[in-house]
Amino acid sequence: MSTATTAVEPAESTYTFSPETLQAVLAPDEAPRRASWLSASVTFGWRAMLKIKHVPEQLFDVTAFPIMMTLMFTYLFGGALAGSTTEYLQFLLPGIMVMSVIMITMYTGIAVNTDIVKGVFDRFRTLPIWRPSTMVGYLLGDAFRYTVACLVILGVGLALGFRPDGGVLGVAAGIGVLVAFSFAFSWVWTMFGLLLRTEKSVMGVSMMVLFPLTFLSNVFVDPSTMPGWLQAFVDVNPISHLVGAVRTLMAGGWDTTDMTWVLVSGVLFTVVFGTLTMRLYNRR
């Protein structure tokens, strides 16, 4: 087996086939054991990180977009809603963080969809590995992107005068809850990524879902001034509870109701859409 390394290494243009070299690499010295579910998932996560390394432009949507959102809404609504932008920022920042991150979860669906069009997906699907690991890998890479987005928004917020009472721990806990929920929520997009034919339709459906889900919530204002029917929706919207939970954590508090909602809806998203995703993944 060690003879393989003695082979000459021809340049691309002068590659000549040598049956001996090939024979040598055809007999691997050790047949490895099957990769564990964790190792396979982490390896796919590594792939997502490599893609960020090679195509850094894709970090644009987790940097420029959140900065734009934060600046836009702080100055747009700040004066009118809270009297001053700095005061409004204390209320808005956790909400705008949730909104931006939830908005960028849709890129998961687009990434899945683009991969399917290329042949590499076929290779992954013929591997003897834990089936969901491909999908979990996407989500692990995305969790990194969500964290980057959170930190960017936090940076902008701090520069503009955001002073959370919860301190470092409270803010870290808030970001942790947000990233964990987004991980669970992204299963919606892995499903659509597999279900829909084109990148454009994934984009379209994402907008249809995300706009009402994020705007019809307590991100911008206290829902008590809304009409009753709208309040009813805002109250059951998991995003409202996520905003509530993150806002309280960053303010140094703890809201059991909101946290329970976040936990239960996160589990539901994972179970329902994770199952649907895997059904589609296996059936394609």
């Binding site: 390896t43 796919f44 090679h54 042949g119 076929d122 992954f124 591997l127």
Partner: peptide, 23 residues
């Protein structure tokens, strides 16, 4: 029929990725 490798990754990364997945 279409190359079953990841075009964004390098050749080495592609093979390491696959080797890791195979255990």
């Amino acid at each position: 029929q279409y190359a079953s490798v990841d075009e964004d990754l390098t050749g080495l990364e592609n093979l390491i990725l696959l080797a890791r997945l195979l255990g």
